[in-house]
Design a protein around this nucleic acid. Structure first.
Lengths: 200, 200
DNA sequence: CATAACTTGGACACGGATGTACAAGATTGG
DNA sequence: CCAATCTTGTACATCCGTGTCCAAGTTATG
């Protein structure tokens, strides 16, 4: 379905500089557009990328392929950013820092996650997301073992709670009901409260 | 657009028993279908209601009208259920009970909320939702005054956190990553941890 | 610079959802 | 029982997004 005029996937070799430029433009625009509107049209994304629709279809045979590529790219970039956070020290402090670094990213691409969840084959999402889940899971588990975090709730739930609260904080900022500074305090403190053993 | 053959909105007076039956059937099916799939088609909903598509359009001139009506109905029913919860006693205990009663409802209709948020004019959602927000806000405020709940975070944020955690728990149950009992414990305990002053 | 690789714009087929329009039949309610 | 009210099936007009196909123009690259 795509081997005639335009190089897609892993057909021949050495894509031209030309093509590479288009591809990254499309991927960038894709991330942007899908983040703003999960139902963004292929046509819209192409226009935003400053490229003809036909060109886009040349590189991504179907919408699904585009979404998948965008999703992969976004998660990869996020991963690179988050790898700079040191999570090996004091669990509580590490969680503070990880959350502070994560919540804006989590937010910026929540919509991309949503579209991926809806349009990609089952499992694909979790696979790409694994790194992030794992990082948090590991930290929380370690914290549970050292007694820094509560053990009466399952790690999986704690992970979910963390992500959820980050999303919520970000959404509130977008809605204008919370400013950046307060949001960061709120999300960090709330998450700590949830993960920490209650002294009540 | 709808005054010729079928009675819509508030046209003439006294709709026939016949019609009232259809309407409630449609509303029920609408809630059901939209809860299962936010993108449920008008045709699907009509079929589920055991009614012809034309009949549905007779009562709800456009998809939007249907969604609005379903949303209103759902929030109203939820409100009736939640009014049975006594929130005048000990704040902590009251919050426990309110959350326990709420999260299943929140869950059952989270998708309806989603569709309403996407298809209804801005503001419409918050208006219908006001009762629920208010109830929680009131309780939390009272608790802050009596010292039962933390005051270092704004009530608005605490409200958001509560709703968010309920949604999350519901979503986990749906995804099969959490069973009902554990979910209830998790959501109640987590919310309490967030709202309660930290003794750390 | 010549050739292969890439882009472009527009036309088109297709499917699915929305909303309109009727004419004929079934119910209801006074 | 009769007239107004409802329902139904079906057909149709529209719009919109996806994906395909080309022929002609551009651009990169050995």
């Amino acid at each position: 379905m795509n081997a005639s005029r335009l190089p897609a996937a892993a057909s021949a070799r050495a894509p031209r500089a030309d093509a590479r430029r288009s591809i990254t433009a499309i991927l960038d625009a894709g991330a942007e557009c899908l983040a703003a509107d999960p139902e963004a049209t292929v046509a819209v994304i192409a226009r935003a990328a400053g490229v003809a629709r036909a060109t886009l279809y040349g590189h991504f045979p179907a919408r699904v392929d585009l979404v998948d590529a965008v999703f992969e790219r976004v998660t990869t970039q996020a991963d690179e950013t988050l790898q700079t956070v040191d999570v090996s020290g004091d669990p509580e402090q590490a969680l503070r820092e990880l959350v502070a670094s994560s919540w804006r990213i989590v937010h910026r691409f929540r919509a991309v996650l949503a579209v991926a969840e809806r349009e990609l084959p089952p499992g694909r999402v979790r696979k790409h997301h694994a790194r992030h889940l794992d990082r948090l899971t590991e930290l929380l588990t370690r914290g549970q073992e050292t007694g820094a975090f509560r053990t009466d709730l399952a790690v999986e739930w704690l992970v979910t709670a963390c992500f959820t609260l980050m999303h919520a904080a970000a959404a509130e900022v977008v809605a204008g009901r919370l400013d950046d500074d307060h949001a960061e305090t709120a999300v960090v403190e709330s998450i700590l409260s949830v993960c920490t053993p209650s002294a009540r």
